[in-house]
Structures are given as structure tokens and as C-alpha cells.
Design a protein around this nucleic acid. Structure first.
Length: 939
RNA sequence: GGGCCCGUAGCUCAGUUGGUUAGAGCGCACGGCUGAUAACCGUGAGGUCAGUGGUUCGAAUCCACUCGGGCCCA
């Protein structure tokens, strides 16, 4: 007889093979059909708010693993929070303006077409480009399972968004935090345009290399009288430069604070520079092997550190301009490998020079116009182009005996990407956010930002150190860009006197203009068309105004999303409960959002900030085309499915850099399959169950109660891990539970009861009661992570277990209540049982190796245990223990330690349940064991 | 060069305030089962805790330096 038909074998439509790449799109269609985002937001509308505000990725190109990781991360948090009942609307955003898009559009157009393209047309093309990639990325993010308001995302090019920039600018302008200053930028004199770092190509060139002594106005005594030289011995500091044309703009010489400086005696003068470089300079200058140093009374060379020298308050005669002097300062950027250790400093012509100028309050002359031609500030070189001026300046210095050496050097120098000509560093008018200056009665930004940082929760904790040190040390924020694709700096200048005009009236008008027509109108309309007639220049009363040409830094734009999005949208609010981005955003969005929020409202834009590491390869190296280690999320979706990416993301410790490799993805897929099979087993044994059959706690076999305790522990552990942002521990706990608690123990033991006991028996229904609880809890626990698979499980679950929820995302969070005191007893007792089980399985393995038994059901076990353990084990009973160890029978005895002996069971194999028992106890079923006979007899 | 951070078995992670032979799961090897079957169960082998030096009775854990890696600056 085929007893199979008489048993309750597993049945399910839930496929073992996931085929995620094929099935996931079907679930996406399902969610779209039921409008899951709206349903969740409605269901949680009365819940406490938990707003995760999306940082906008740049709308340029396809998503990569970093953006995929970030979005998946956000999605699992939003889904967890909404399942917990929080109201967590998620509005994805995109950063649409900026140089990379403009640059790409310009490249696509080509130089010829560019010439005939108006700014308005260029902006239209940029817009088209950005919107195209918003669509591309939106599709890709959704394919990853990300849920949100993709119907109505926020875009930084939306008119209302653009207007928000003006609101913040106005607040900060009126609070005295925004000023106009000058700053050196890369400038192409041929294209007459500013260049961003990304538009610079570095090439090797041969440049002039000159060593110029700057004569001190008062020779320092340390190098003269103190060393036995005449008090009026001329003393100079020797600088080195490869750009002679920047000398007219010199204002200072920067020394290395800790380096030693010495004086070389040469033709009756003293030339001071770094001791380390004496031999090098002597060679270039042709001084020969014997270099005479200024020596003190002890015969040792006179040495002063840079700090000491700068501390003397010396001034020097300007190398070019009569009657002008410069000063000595110290800075960290001074190198001692080449040059003289004394750096010619022209704040108008170099980044570091500019920073030195800021720090020491130096003037910042900039005598070069847009074409690279010296104006009157060029002194004797006025009217010359800088390139022409170089040889003339060298000649001029030589004539005045102010040239120690002139040679050439080869080094890498920035060039324009367009015309391939060398660029220059040139100070231009720019707009700045001041970190330390503000209107009367207004707290300066740095101070306010630092306090705000202290009010925010930073996760992980070290993250606060990073943002704090950055805000503490950062220079003023240059917010203007000489570009077309962006939001204008919303101010005007008076056509007659040049004064800046920015008043309540103009701001109101500009905000209204942007809201109705977008920032494009700034470039197509005349101010007279939208400004009130009453607007006048505050200085000269002029009424003709010129709109500012520059646009605002894109970091500013994304930063103001707290206003343009959180304040502007009804369903959102400021501050957000959470910002979540990669660690690079300490310099980027976290900071631009903080500074604009504190600047405008004196309050942080977020309550907490969570940062994750970067995605690197299996060896911890960054992904790059040249290393050939790039893994595309789109490929992984195609090959393995989005849930594999989601599981990988959840399993990683995001507080460090996160590795991905083929091996890691393979391991992730294996873990996925393990969990999937666990779900499949649960589903397949619940096909004939509904909650009306549920068995009460008190009626359950002890093992089932213990199983509920472990489930309850799991729910607690997982919930805590989610709440404490430790997602990899969620994964860990769930996975270990599936493998250790369920698969290798509880489910393995349960098979006999589920398959062989009476369909409607208490023992089987009790097991199913537990399995139903495990299934409906577990599927919820993993739903934020395995978003597709959880839905698939949900839809395959008996309808009676779904509580009327059309999607698992609407099913809420599980709770499993167990009596606390009894739970403690069970945990303690089963610790002993499981230890004994380990001993038994080990003994079984030994007897398998000895060819004594094969399956554990063939074994008869004698278990010995010390008195204390024996008491616990006896309390369960030998029969229950045999069931839990899946052996034929078991006897207990007291012994020194835990030990197990194995013998071949005496009974015969029951053809129905495959256990080794005494058969034929029921004459009606001579070949069956007693239990199976009872089941078939309907007892 | 500076700021912040990281480096425990092939992989992903545990290792409380320094304290017995450094743990887990996966993978791997071997075995079992064939009523979770492109599944399931068991056993086993894997680690100079990046390296060096130091503090200590005792360090994966504290300190210094070195090496390797990441982000951001320069």
C-alpha cells in the first residue's frame, strides 16, 4: 500500500527557484496597480511622523552601486518605520542644475553650434538632458524596489524649488551673512571664461623659473650687526616663481613656520632663504661649491625659523612697484623640496595665496583684465598680455640686479578643455557666505552651525567629529558660479553707480517671478518687466538695474531643500527626522543644508544624520573603470534580482566602507535561498490551516511553546536592531534563526508530527499554530529588506493569515507574546536539551562512520548526564527527547558528563512514518506502528 | 601633507568596562537522507585578531609607529 496518500505532505505553489529577475517586475506592477505608496501613507496618516528626507542624486547617467545602496538603505528604513505605524512619506529628489550637465550639453553641441546658441536655448537643452536622466534613474530606483512618490518627485529645476533659493538668500542677505568679495578662479583668457575644476586638463609645459630677492626695507640685525656685518648691509628674502607675471600682484612672502632660514653672503649683500635648499639654489645660481653663510660669534650659521623671521615684523620693497612694501607670513603649504622655502604670495592669483590673504587680511590686487592684459596695476607692464609680460619682467628684474637666477622648468600646468591653452589664476568678483560676520545682533554662522551640530544626533557617533572639524575650519563659502545652467544670484546692480540693489521689494518680485515662470525668466525678461517701478538704487537713486550674471553653487541649491521641499510640501515638515547619505556629504549636502538652515532660521534642518561608507571591491579598493572592478546594480538585478542587492545592502556594516564582489554576491544569493526555502517549508505545511484551528498556549506541547519563545526573542532582537540602526544585525538574527532555530532543529523535529499525525490532531494543529505565527512574523520582519520576496510570500500565504491586508507592506509589525516566567524556564531547560542534542548528533555521526546506522531514526540512544542536567532532561521525558533528537528511542542515565551511546534500534521501520517502532500493535494494521494505525483508524 | 574612519578564518559578522584553549553562520571537505529534493540533516578542517614596539601579572581589546585601504581637504 502506498501510505503517502494517507499523510499530510507539504503542498505549495510557492516556487523553490526565485527567478527574481523575472518575477520582481510583476510585483512592481502589482504595487502600481494597488497604488501602494498612497495606501501606506493613508494607513499611517495618524501615526507619529518619521520623515526621511531624500538627498537628491545628480541627474546625470545611470545609477551605480553607490546610489543603489543609498536608495535601498533609505527604502528599508522608510518601510520599517511605516510598518511600525510611523507616517513616513518618501519624496525622491534630483539635483538638476550644474556644470556637469551644462558641460555635457556643450560637448554634444560642439563649438560651432555653441556659438549660435543663446543662453536661453542652452538652458532648455540642459533641462531636457536633466529630465531625461531623472526618468532613467526613477525607473532604476523603482526597479530596486524603492517605494515613494515617484509621480511627484522634487526637482531642483522646478519653479517653486528655484524660488526657495531666493527665500533663503534673502534671509541670509538680510542677516548680513552674504557679501561680495573676490577670489581667484581658473580663467581662460582666450575663451574669456571661468573654468570649473572638471574643465581643466593638466599638461606638462616648460615654464620660466626665476629666483628673485626681495630687499628688506630695514635689514634685520640678526643677519647684519649681530653677525659682525655692517648695519646697512642689504638683506633680501629670496623667492622662487614660475609665473613672473604674477609679481606685480605680490603682497607677501610666505615662510614655513618650523623650517630654518639662513643668510647667504653674496657680493656684499645677504640673501635669506631655507637652509635645506642652499645647495640646490647655489647650483642653479652658479655660486660654486663654496657658499658663504652669515655666521654668528660662535661660528655657526645664523638660523631663524620661519616663525621667528616672520615675527620680526619686517617689510620688503615691492619688486615691481615703487613705494610699495610687502610683509612676511607663515603658512602650511610652503614646500622645502623645490624653490627657496619662501613663497611669493599674490592673493589675486592663487588658491593658497588667497587663503593666506584671507587669514592675514592682506590686500588682493588683481591687475589683469578678462583678456589677460595688465591694467594700470601692472605698473611698467600695463597694456601687456601676461604671456608677453613674462620675458619683459625677467629682463626688467635683471636690469635692476634683482634676479639671482633665471632658468626653465618642466611641470604640469592647467589648460582649458576647450581651447587647450594654458589658463591663469585670476581673482574675480564673487558672492560669499561669511562664516564669521553677520549683521548687528545676529549670531555669526559658524557659531550657530556649531551649536546646531550639537543638537543633532549623528550616526555613527564619530560622524559628529567630522562635520564639526569641517565647519570649524572651513573658509567662507563662495556661492557664485560663472555659468548658465542654474539659479541666478537674485540681486541687481545699479546701472549708473554699480551699487548692489537687493531689497524686500526686489526679493518679493523675484520670488514671485520664479514661482510663476521659473528662473529662466531671469535670463529672458528685463528687470523693468517684473520689478515694481518704485525700486531705486539706495545710493544714487538710479532706477535702471542690471540683474546679476552669476548663478548660485549647486550645493546651495540642494542644501535649501529643507525650504523648497520640506516647508513647501504639505505632507512634509522641517526639520526632517533623518538625512541619510554617504560620508562624502559631510562636505556636501549635510553641510550646505546645515549652513543654509542655520543661516536662515538659526536651526538645524534635521534631527539626525546617518552616514554610510563607500562601496568598494572585495579588496577594499574603490571601484573604477581602470581597475576593472566595477559592478553595476543593473547587471546584478538582471542576473540575480534586486532582492539580492537589498539583502547585500542590509547585511553590510554600513559604518565602514562596504565591499561588493562576485563572491560576496554569491554568498548573499545562497543566504537568500536558505531564507526562501524556509518560507517555502512554512507555507507548504500551512496549506490546510486557518486561525480557527489555532491551539492555545496551555494546550501546546512544550516544544511548541519553546518555539514561540524563540520567535518572540527574535522579534524583540530584530525590532531593537532596526530601532538602533543596526540593519546587518537584523539580517544576522533572521538568518541565524532560519538556519539554527528552525531548519536544523524545530522544523526538522516537526516533520514527523506534521506529516504523520492525524490531519486534525491537536499535535499537528499545535505545530501549525506555531508555524503560522512564525510565518506571519518572519515575513513582516524581512519585508523592509526582501521587499519583493516578502510580498511573494504574503500573497502565497493562506488568505486567513493575511488579516485582510492586500500587501505585506500594510500588515504592520509583529508581536509575539509569551508568559515571561515560563519563557525563562523554557530557555533554561532547552539550553540543556540542545547541549544534549549536540552530544547525541556527534555520537550518531560516529556510529554512521562505523557503518552502524545511517538515518538517526534507526538509532537507539543511551544518554548519560550529570545529576543537574539529568533532572532537566528527565522532566522532558525520554520519549519527548527521542522525538527532539529524531531517534528511535532513548534511555537516560546518570553519569559524570554528558555522553551518548548508540545502538541499532530494535524496532522495525514503519512503512508509513519511517520510524523504527514495534509494528502490528493494532491487529487491523499489522505492518504499521501504533501511532500510524491510530491515525488510519481515525482515532 | 592635513582631518575623519577602517583592517578578527575564503565571505559576512560577534567578541561587554583588557582576564580561561578568539566565536557564529555561510562557503569548503567528508558523510547521511531521498516525504523542504537544483532542497534538507550531521561531522570536520580553516585565524601569527594587518605588522612592529610599548603599557600591564595579563591585550584582538589601551598607547605609539609602520603598512594597506576609504572619504574629504591640500
Amino acid at each position: 500500500m502506498d501510505y503517502k496518500q494517507t499523510m499530510n505532505l507539504p503542498q505549495t505553489e510557492f516556487p523553490m527557484r526565485a527567478s527574481l529577475a523575472k518575477r520582481e517586475p510583476e510585483w512592481l506592477a502589482f504595487w502600481e496597480e494597488i497604488d501602494i505608496d498612497r495606501l501606506v501613507n493613508e494607513a499611517t496618516s495618524d501615526g507619529p511622523p518619521f520623515l526621511l528626507h531624500d538627498g537628491p542624486p545628480y541627474a546625470n547617467g545611470h545609477i551605480h552601486m553607490g546610489t543603489a545602496f543609498n536608495k535601498v538603505f533609505k527604502d528599508l528604513i522608510v518601510k520599517y518605520k511605516s510598518m511600525r505605524g510611523f507616517h513616513s512619506p518618501y519624496v525622491p529628489g534630483w539635483d538638476c542644475h550644474g556644470q556637469p550637465i551644462e558641460h555635457q550639453v556643450e560637448k554634444d553641441l560642439g563649438p560651432e553650434k555653441m556659438k549660435t546658441t543663446s543662453q536661453a536655448e542652452l538652458r532648455a537643452l540642459c533641462r531636457e538632458y536633466a529630465l531625461k536622466f531623472v526618468d532613467v534613474q526613477a525607473t532604476e530606483f523603482q526597479r530596486l524596489g524603492v517605494r515613494g512618490d515617484f509621480e511627484r518627485p522634487y526637482l531642483t529645476l522646478d519653479p517653486a524649488y528655484e524660488a526657495g533659493n531666493v527665500r533663503i538668500f534673502r534671509e541670509m542677505y538680510e542677516r548680513g551673512m552674504i557679501y561680495k568679495g573676490s577670489k581667484p578662479i581658473h580663467w581662460c583668457i582666450r575663451c574669456k571664461t571661468a573654468l570649473a575644476e572638471a574643465e581643466i586638463e593638466y599638461r606638462d609645459v616648460t615654464s620660466h623659473s626665476i629666483y628673485v630677492p626681495f630687499a628688506f626695507t630695514e635689514p634685520p640685525s640678526a643677519f647684519t650687526v649681530d653677525a659682525g656685518l655692517a648695519a646697512d648691509t642689504p638683506v633680501s628674502v629670496l623667492i622662487w616663481t614660475t609665473t613672473p607675471w604674477t609679481l606685480p600682484a605680490n603682497v607677501a612672502v610666505t615662510l614655513a613656520a618650523d623650517a630654518a632660514y639662513v643668510g647667504v653672503v653674496r657680493d656684499g649683500r645677504v640673501i635669506v632663504f631655507a637652509e635645506e635648499l642652499v645647495a640646490q639654489v647655489a647650483e642653479v645660481a652658479g655660486w660654486g661649491a663654496e657658499v658663504e653663510l652669515v655666521r654668528g660669534g660662535d661660528g655657526e650659521p645664523v638660523r631663524l625659523t620661519g616663525a621667528e623671521l616672520a615675527g620680526l615684523g619686517l617689510t620688503y620693497t615691492h619688486p615691481i612697484h615703487d613705494g610699495v612694501t610687502g610683509v612676511l607670513v607663515t603658512g602650511e603649504h610652503v614646500e622645502l623640496s623645490t624653490g627657496t622655502g619662501a613663497v611669493h604670495t599674490a592673493p589675486g592669483h592663487g588658491e593658497e595665496d588667497y587663503l593666506m590673504g584671507q587669514r592675514f587680511g592682506l590686500p588682493s590686487p588683481m591687475p589683469v583684465d578678462d583678456d589677460g592684459v595688465f591694467d594700470a596695476g601692472g605698473g611698467p607692464f600695463a597694456g601687456l598680455r601676461v604671456t608677453e609680460a613674462n620675458p619683459r619682467i625677467i629682463e626688467w628684474l635683471a636690469e635692476r640686479d634683482a634676479l639671482v637666477a633665471a632658468t626653465t622648468t618642466s611641470h604640469s600646468y592647467p589648460h582649458c578643455w576647450r581651447c587647450k591653452q594654458p589658463v591663469i589664476f585670476r581673482a574675480t568678483e564673487q558672492w560669499f557666505v561669511s562664516m564669521d560676520l553677520a549683521a548687528e545682533g545676529v549670531r555669526p554662522l559658524r557659531e550657530g552651525a556649531l551649536e546646531a551640530i550639537g543638537q543633532v544626533e549623528w550616526i555613527p557617533g564619530w560622524s559628529v567629529n567630522r562635520i564639526r572639524s569641517m565647519v570649524t575650519d572651513r573658509p567662507d563659502w563662495c556661492i557664485s558660479r560663472q555659468r548658465a545652467w542654474g539659479v541666478p544670484i537674485p540681486v541687481f546692480s545699479c546701472a549708473s553707480c554699480g551699487e548692489t540693489v537687493a531689497t524686500d521689494e526686489t526679493f518679493d518680485a523675484v520670488i514671485a517671478l520664479f514661482e510663476t515662470e521659473g528662473a529662466d525668466a531671469w535670463f529672458t525678461r528685463k528687470p523693468s518687466e517684473y520689478l515694481p517701478e518704485t525700486v531705486r538704487c539706495g545710493r544714487c537713486g538710479g532706477s535702471s538695474l542690471i540683474p546679476e550674471d552669476d548663478i548660485v553653487d549647486v550645493w546651495w541649491e540642494s542644501g535649501v531643500s529643507h525650504t523648497s521641499v520640506l516647508d513647501a510640501r504639505e505632507e512634509l515638515h522641517r526639520p526632517a527626522e533623518l538625512y541619510l547619505e554617504g560620508s562624502d556629504q559631510h562636505r556636501g549636502w549635510f553641510q550646505s543644508a546645515l549652513l543654509t538652515s542655520v543661516g536662515a532660521y538659526d536651526a538645524p534642518p534635521y534631527e539626525r544624520v546617518l552616514t554610510h561608507g563607500f562601496i568598494v571591491d572585495g579588496d577594499g579598493r574603490k571601484m573604477s573603470k581602470s581597475l576593472g572592478n566595477v559592478i553595476s546594480p543593473l547587471d546584478v538585478i538582471e542576473r540575480s534580482g534586486a532582492d539580492i542587492i537589498r539583502l547585500w545592502a542590509a547585511a553590510a556594516d554600513y559604518s565602514q566602507d562596504v565591499s561588493i564582489s562576485d563572491e560576496i554576491l554569491d554568498r548573499t544569493s545562497e543566504a537568500y535561498r536558505r531564507m526562501r526555502n524556509t518560507f517555502r517549508f512554512l507555507l507548504s505545511n500551512l496549506h490546510d490551516y486557518d486561525p480557527s484551528m489555532a491551539v492555545a498556549w496551555d494546550e501546546m506541547p512544550e516544544l511548541d511553546r519553546y518555539a514561540l519563545v524563540t520567535l518572540s526573542d527574535l522579534v524583540d532582537r530584530v525590532t531593537r536592531a532596526y530601532d538602533e540602526w543596526r540593519f546587518h544585525q537584523v539580517y544576522r538574527a533572521v538568518f541565524d534563526y532560519c538556519v539554527v532555530d528552525l531548519s536544523s532543529f524545530y522544523l526538522d523535529v516537526l516533520k514527523d508530527r506534521l506529516y504523520s499525525d492525524g490531519t486534525d490532531s491537536l499535535s499537528r494543529r499545535s505545530a501549525q499554530t506555531v508555524l503560522a505565527s512564525v510565518l506571519t512574523s518572519l515575513v513582516r520582519l524581512v519585508a523592509p529588506i526582501l521587499t519583493f520576496t516578502a510580498e511573494e510570500v504574503w500573497q502565497h500565504s493562506p488568505e486567513s493569515l493575511r488579516d485582510g491586508h492586500v500587501s505585506v507592506q500594510l500588515a504592520g509589525w509583529p508581536t509575539v507574546e509569551v508568559p515571561a516566567e515560563e519563557a525563562d524556564e523554557l530557555r533554561a531547560a532547552y539550553k540543556v536539551v540542545l547541549e544534549a542534542r549536540d552530544v547525541v548528533t556527534k555520537a550518531l555521526e560516529d556510529s554512521r562512520a562505523a557503518k552502524l546506522v545511517n538515518k538517526s531514526q534507526e538509532a537507539s540512544v543511551e544518554l548519560t548526564a550529570p545529576a543537574e542536567a539529568l533532572e532537566v532532561l528527565s522532566a522532558r521525558g525520554a520519549e519527548r527527547l527521542a522525538e527532539m533528537f529524531i531517534v528511535a528511542d532513548l534511555t537516560l542515565a546518570e553519569g559524570d558528563g554528558l555522553g551518548a551511546g548508540v545502538a541499532v534500534a530494535s524496532g522495525e521501520k514503519c512503512p508509513r512514518c519511517w520510524n523504527h517502532r514495534t509494528l502490528g500493535v493494532d491487529p487491523a494494521f499489522p505492518e504499521l506502528c501504533g501511532r500510524c494505525a491510530g491515525v488510519l483508524a481515525g482515532r
